[in-house]
Amino acid sequence: MRNIWIICRKELGSYFVSPVAYILLTMFGLIFGYFFWNALAAFLVESIQMQMRGQSFPMNLNEWIIRPLLANVSVVNLFFVPLITMRLFAEEKRNGTIELLATSPIRDGEIIFGKWLAALLLYVCLLLFTAANFAFLFRYGNPDWKPLLVGYLGLLLQAGALLAIGTFISTTTKNQIIAGAVTFGVCLLLFVFGWVSGYDTSTWAQVLSYLSIATHSESFYRGVIDSKDAIYYVTVIFLGLFFTARSMESLRWRS
C-alpha cells in the first residue's frame, strides 16, 4: 500500500512539475466549457421556441444539458487518455529508470497500480476543473445533482478503463508517440464497436456492441448505476492492469 502511494506521488509530481498537467487542464477546461456553452445555448433557443409555440412543457436541465454534455465529454476522453498514459512506462524504458524500479524491493503490481492511480487522479483533476460550469447551472437553474454525480462516476469509470488500456500499451514500447498513437487507435475502435448494433442484430454484432466502451456509459449519463455496466468497466480495468503486469514480466524474460 505504502509503495503504491510512493509511486503514485512520484508520477503525479512528474505530471505537475512539467507543463503537461497544466496544458491538459487548460485544454480540457476549454473544450468542456465550449461544449457546455453550446448545450446551454441550444437549450435556451429550444425553450424560447417552445414558449412561442405555447407549449408550457417543463424542460429538464438534466435531460437537455447534462446528459448530452457528458456523452460528448466521453468522446474527449479518447483524445486525453493517450496523452496521459503514453509516458507512463515508455519514458521509463527510454531513460533506463525502469531498471531502478525493477531492482527496488517493490512488486511489479505496486508499480503498475501506482502509475495507473496517478493517471486516474490526474483525470479526476480534469473533471473537478469542469465543475465550475455546473456551478452556474445550479446558481440559475435547479438541476438534479444525483444524476450529475452518477454521470461523473460513469466518466470516471470509462476513463479508468481507457487508462488501464493505455498503461498496458505504454509498456510495449519505449517510444511515447507510438504508445500514444496505438492507445488512441485502440480506444477509438473500442468506442465505435457499438455502431454495429445500428444495422445488425446477429450474435456477433451483439458481442461487438457489448465490448464497446461507449455503450456502457449511457446508463450512467441518464443517472442510473447499472451494475452490469459498472462490472464491465471494472473488468476492463482489471484486465488492462493484468496485461500490464504480464507485459512487464515478459520484458524481463526477453530484454
Partner: peptide, 13 residues
C-alpha cells in the same frame, strides 16, 4: 545497490 550503465535519473526531478 545498483548503478546501471546510464544512471537511472528522472531528469525532471
Amino acid at each position: 545497490g545498483y548503478l546501471p550503465e546510464t544512471p537511472p535519473l528522472y531528469l525532471e526531478m
